[in-house]
């Protein structure tokens, strides 16, 4: 059914990706003086599969977190979804377009932000950049004014509207980039590492803005990141890619429920002397890790023990001042997914 080209119209998903594959041919680089001389004459070709039969779809209004280590294939996927790269195999339909084929029309209907590279003109003032974009995207005056007003309010851009981009801090620049990518009101927004290198406050502001835009305009967002707190804050859906393959695609809460293996209990002992009795609680499936003299972190298998039982056991045997129960951190779950390489 999916091979039927008519299907483009009947799909309800905003982004439909089927068996997407990208191979690169590169040259092996040799190191050092000897290698540099060898490179001068002969170079060895290698083929790398950056994205390997990736399939997923995104519904309108969704916010999806796309995560993976460096070189896992995140950026390559985004580049294919935005029309910069032509896939080696498989297909993409987004907003009703095949991105690389209808690139120029398609770009009017998407917004893109690359965290490491600004989309703005380096030497000119922010507001001038916006004016150029207004012309490039043929945005009507009224829309432009309205959206500019809205963004400068939520993102607080007023103070540096007249500053050249090169003089902005990373956080300020990212806010401007975000505003720039949304000036033409695209229904679909791609963000590649939008919070990379930002401090906590700046990150927070960006996240709040994205939530607001998603709420107001139902803008669909696909963001890559390797900061998992971005995903916890923003998206309910998470996709994990590693070595070009999707390892997990699903609800974040669902992932936690299904794949979290342990819970953890952080506790503070009344005094140092209590530590002597620690051995009594670390039995079958329960481990205990020392943080400092009186602080310990206990992990236990969710299937074998209930929190209530573990805590009862703990307070019975040791004199404890404080207890905090926590879920397994999402980083640990993701790490395990990478290691196992596949999820059922």
């Amino acid at each position: 059914m999916r091979d039927d080209p008519q299907c483009v119209d009947c799909m309800t998903a905003l982004v439909e990706v089927q068996d997407l594959t990208k191979e690169f041919r590169t040259f092996k680089r040799r190191e050092g003086v000897k290698g540099a001389i060898q490179n001068l004459f002969v170079r060895e070709r290698i083929i790398v599969k950056a994205v390997d039969h990736v399939t997923f779809s995104i519904e309108p209004g969704e916010m999806v977190g796309y995560i993976g280590a460096n070189g896992a294939g995140k950026s390559t996927t985004i580049k294919m979804l935005t029309g910069i790269l032509v896939p080696t195999g498989g297909r993409v339909v987004a907003n009703g377009f095949v991105p690389c084929r209808d690139r120029r029309h398609y770009t009017k209907r998407i917004g893109v932000v690359f965290g490491q590279r600004t989309q703005l003109w380096w030497d000119i003032a922010v507001v001038e950049s916006f004016k150029l974009l207004k012309e490039l995207y043929e945005i009507p005056d009224a829309d432009y004014q309205k959206r500019l007003g809205l963004f400068s309010e939520i993102l607080n851009l007023k103070d540096y509207m007249n500053t050249p981009v090169r003089k902005l801090s990373l956080g300020e620049r990212m806010r401007c980039d975000l505003a720039a990518s949304l000036l033409h009101n695209p229904p679909l927004l791609f963000l590649d590492e939008p919070t990379i290198g930002l401090d906590v406050v700046a990150k927070d502001r960006i996240r709040e803005f994205l939530k607001e835009i998603n709420r107001l305009e139902r803008t669909t967002v696909l963001l890559t990141t390797h900061d998992l707190s971005d995903i916890e804050e923003l998206s309910r859906r998470i996709m994990i890619i590693d070595r070009g393959k999707i390892l997990f695609d699903g609800d974040l809460a669902e992932m936690k429920k299904r794949l979290a293996q342990y819970n953890q209990v952080k506790f503070f002992l009344k005094d140092r002397a209590q530590a002597a009795s620690l051995a009594q609680i670390t039995t079958d499936g329960i481990s205990c890790e020392r943080v400092d003299d009186v602080t310990y972190l206990m992990r236990f298998d969710r299937d074998k023990h209930s929190s209530a039982e573990v805590i009862r056991n703990l307070v019975n045997r040791l004199e404890v001042r404080d207890i905090f129960i926590e879920e397994e951190p999402i980083e640990d779950i993701v790490k395990r997914i990478y290691l196992s390489g596949e999820v059922g």
Binding site: R104, H105, T107, V112, F114, R117, Q119, L136, E138
Partner: peptide, 21 residues
């Protein structure tokens, strides 16, 4: 440095953008 990506993301001819930036 990869600035050409940005050129490709805009709804105007690539050559036009490169020459007149």
């Amino acid at each position: 440095e990869g600035r050409f990506d940005r050129i490709l993301l805009r709804p105007v001819d690539t050559l036009f953008q490169v020459l007149f930036e």
